[in-house]
Design a protein around this nucleic acid. Structure first.
Lengths: 212, 212
DNA sequence: CATAATAGGGAACGATCATTTCCGAATCAA
DNA sequence: TTGATTCGGAAATGATCGTTCCCTATTATG
């Protein structure tokens, strides 16, 4: 019932040199895609090992041999989730010519992830922030890092738009980027409550007003 | 399944007529305030009964006698959280004369809750959305109800601003309200990653650009 | 004073949790 | 072939979870 988020567009994350020993029978990336789905919709603590073994099609022994423990599986799933989303976002950005168009593409991308089944599944970064921000310093640092990274990228896009004349020059790129980040993360939260495309799609165009 | 979220304002939520039997020794509202803190920062599944008994200063027996079970405690804490926030927000709104000023007050209110210790503690509605949107239909309905309610209130404020001439008349109140809701919820998510006042406060003023 | 009813508290319960252990199977290097 | 090494899988482990039970304490009612 769980479908892989996106067909693997990234290079196989584990080069996996075939040393001695029995080779792994399952696809690590496919397993992580399933883990992403489980963790996203149930949260970290809400996802039991039994849920994960069922979804991944692995026994507990194999799972622990491959990912050390539940936390290691979450970390691996988190990193893959971020990498996949970053790739998809990068692909979407390539078609946009100006800074403003790129920001619109980002907004469209998030709006498109925030309704229907994907919206309900939710964002693993948000789940990590809510579940583990106070409980697990390392995961908290990872979440913080991703958000700061995205904030910086948005600031770069704002500056790019100001340079090419498509974004008002008097805006503070940092503040504008942070505000856009809130819009994006907020879409993911609201999208968990079951919205449809007609509700979320118009938000992207409307948010562009922030660039005038 | 619509529940009176803000039925009791600041008045004691439990009228508690003293029937027969030993009277309760602890303050229910104070206990719920502690529960709000625990659930907010650890999430629903992350908050163990032992965490709650320690924070509330109650034994498990008393806790279950008063709130039925963990879910009942969460529901009571959730309702109180929403009621308290609604009251605080209402108080803040009273000082604002125009629709635009009221929306600015709302934005300031959320920005003020999204940094420092309060920001790290996080929002119980967001926590409920992330942890239980797919697991518990009744709680999911309650979360959805709160967000829709707030969305509707924001739409009313936009319309009010359009009527008094402080908000551009060509805007769609519904879409604008939904976008503002995303900004507010996004602040709460970003605020979980440890921001300070200097980062969050300017967002409120900047978001007002959405009303031009 | 006697009875009913509720609260406080702590020990105990079964269930489930994350994790480990054990063993047969599969692969590589010699 | 022979070790060394890793994997898959199922059963077992100890810990912790949410919850209940039982007993005492405290109040209202009659």
């Amino acid at each position: 019932m769980i479908v892989p988020y996106y067909a693997a567009m990234t290079a196989p994350s584990s080069p996996r040199r075939p040393g001695p020993g029995r080779p792994r029978e399952f696809d690590t990336d496919l397993a992580l895609d399933r883990a992403i789905a489980v963790f996203s919709e149930r949260g970290y603590q809400g996802a039991a090992i039994s849920d994960l073994t069922r979804a991944l099609g692995l026994t507990a022994g194999s799972l622990y041999k491959a990912f050390t423990d539940k936390r290691g599986l979450f970390l691996a799933a988190f990193d893959r989730y971020v990498a996949l989303r970053t790739d998809r976002l990068r692909a979407v950005l390539e078609g946009a010519p100006t800074g403003r168009a790129k920001i619109k593409a980002v907004l469209d991308f998030y709006a498109g992830s925030s309704y229907g089944a994907d919206g309900r599944r939710g964002c693993l970064v948000v789940a990590g922030a809510v579940d583990l921000a106070t409980a697990d310093p390392e995961i908290a640092a990872r979440v913080t890092g991703v958000l700061h990274l995205n904030e910086g990228r948005l600031a770069d896009l704002v500056a790019e738009g100001q340079a090419d004349g498509t974004i008002a020059p008097h805006l503070d790129p940092m503040v504008t980027a942070r505000l856009l980040l809130c819009v994006l993360q907020g879409m993911r939260v609201v999208g968990k409550t079951g919205r449809d495309r007609a509700e979320m799609a118009p938000l992207a165009d409307n948010a562009l007003r922030l660039l005038d």
